[in-house]
Amino acid sequence: MADLYQVENLRLSLADMTQRRAFGPATQVEILKGLSFTLPRGSVTGIVGGSGSGKSTLGRALVRLLAPSSGAIRFDGVDLAHMTEAQLRPLRRRFQMIFQDPMSSLNPRHRIATLIAEPLRLHRFDAIPARVARALDQVGLGSAYANRFPHELSGGQRQRVGIARAIALEPDFILADEIVSGLDVSSQAQVLNLLERLVAELGLTLAFISHDLSVIRRLCQRTLVLQHGRIVEDRPTADLFAAPEADYTRALLEAIPLPDPSQPWV
């Protein structure tokens, strides 16, 4: 099968946090309003949109941290959308997530080696120390970092640990949610170059969530643009940048401050 993910008419509602009722069930608000798309095996797809567009919710649905209200999420032919946690457990190793803020996603009391070993143990891998060493090596940290704590690392290095944790499980799919937005440009470039190389080497399928179209432009072959829980554009990245079709895509592009004072902001 050429597509790793086939998503059909995906809908997802969450409790509306802005309304509060004294009695009865919480008001639901629909975040994802019928999304359909595929992620081909080995592809790198960007998911962009402003805050509240549903991009992170979509990401969390893909790795089933959230349960959709209707629709299908077929992963390698199997529909994850309505599986129970017990049914999902054997599959979870295959789709991994790298979080935005490694400082809050990595337990500050654990050493780096333990942090990478933990998910391996959960998924009952053998030869864990060797796998941890290899993952550290793959992300360019090396064994010197194995015994350090997250706070001893720079933001870029912590994000490398996040990547190591994900790839150590030998997944098919990685979801990266705004993983470079807290980093300065030079570390951003290092982390993205690393991710790009690993995805190619390991033959991973990657979905990269970002609000930064400049980053998407460099990394992703294809881009989905989300607005208010709907896909407003789904095209090869080069085409999308050459001639954005949706007004919203154009607005997103025009809002990026290019490092060039001769181009005034409209």
């Binding site: 030079s186 951003q188 470039a189 170059n193 004072p261």
Partner: peptide, 28 residues
Amino acid sequence: FAAPKHPYSAALLAATPRYTDPSAGLNP
């Protein structure tokens, strides 16, 4: 922006991504 003088600030500028030019930026 026309010509940064210090090599470090020039490198910082080169690391800044530009969506108009996919080959530019993301250079550590």
